[in-house]
């Protein structure tokens, strides 16, 4: 276990050092993060605007959902996108061989090898949005409540990661999976708004098939104190289920790995 922590420290140390080699790139990324957040707040204000409500959610309540979406999108920019998109590169260029020959869990390496700190401000802004929206909506949370919120956020993150990893793992066969991950990002984007704001069929789809509801709406409901206990258990169950499925699928995919020719 200590070996994994030490490896992780070195992974991220070298990842940050690699990115700092290109100074201008870092500045541009930070600007892009700021602009994208402003853009999504503007979109949200069009739908919900102060004093308006959609699907039973007020402006401030919807801001909490937007906050959780921003946190998850920040996590995707920080960890998921840089790591999981490099799986495709590894498969195509044959450098996956080096990863598979290391005495360390290959899923651990491929999922956490690099980090893009440009996504961290997005996570911080998302959390601020959740706190501010919750405060304005009159939510009051006990320490235990905060723990449940964080647990559900973690579950949402795990679901997103597992879906992403499942798609990335198919690159063992298809090599190009760029389009599939774009679809996934579009689906995640539907999590900007409370699930209740969508028509019933989509609501069902986002709850049971592609569990977007558990990514943003359910944590927001916990903040507002309206989450039902069965939903929380379902969310946790789905998170564990998706993670186990992604892991098993990875082992299955590796059996079919043929390695790029030299």
């Amino acid at each position: 276990m200590r070996r994994y922590f030490k490896s992780l420290r070195r992974f991220w140390g070298t990842a940050v050092a690699s990115q700092l080699e290109y100074q201008l790139n870092v500045v541009i990324e930070l600007v892009a993060v700021g602009l994208s957040l402003l853009g999504s707040l503007f979109m949200l204000s069009l739908f919900f605007g102060p004093g308006r409500a959609l699907g039973g959610w007020s402006w401030h309540e919807a801001l909490i959902v937007q906050g959780f979406y921003t946190v998850l999108d920040g996590m995707a920019s920080t960890w998921l996108r840089p790591n999981l998109s490099s799986i495709v590169t590894h498969v195509r260029e044959g450098t996956l061989d080096f990863v598979l020959l290391k005495p360390i869990d290959s899923q651990f390496w491929l999922s956490l090898r690099t980090i893009s700190p440009a996504g961290l401000p997005e996570i911080a802004l998302g959390l601020l949005l959740v706190i501010w929206g919750g405060h304005q909506a009159g939510a009051s949370l006990s320490p235990g409540g905060i723990a449940v919120v964080l647990l559900m956020l973690l579950a949402g993150g795990l679901i997103l990661y597992s879906l992403w990893f499942l798609i990335a793992a198919t690159s063992i066969w298809f090599v190009k999976t760029w389009n599939a991950t774009e679809v996934l990002r579009a689906v995640l984007a539907s999590g900007r708004y409370p699930v209740a704001a969508y028509p019933a069929p989509l609501r069902l789809l986002f709850t049971l098939v592609i569990p977007v509801a558990f990514l943003t709406t359910v944590p927001a409901e916990v903040v507002l104190g309206r989450a039902s206990t069965p939903m929380l258990w379902l969310g946790l169950g789905l998170a564990v289920g998706f993670f186990v499925a992604a892991r098993q699928f990875w082992f299955y995919a590796l059996r079919h790995y043929t390695s790029a020719s030299s």
Binding site: S7, T14, A17, E21, T95, F98, K102, P103, S262
Partner: peptide, 26 residues
């Protein structure tokens, strides 16, 4: 395994950084 046409060293960093990563992993 050493492959003449593929590399495991991190392109943007000195070899020492890759060596430190390998040391931690092993």
């Amino acid at each position: 395994l050493v492959m003449g046409q593929k590399q495991q060293l991190l392109w943007d960093l000195p070899p020492m950084d890759s060596l430190r990563v390998n040391a931690a992993v092993y």
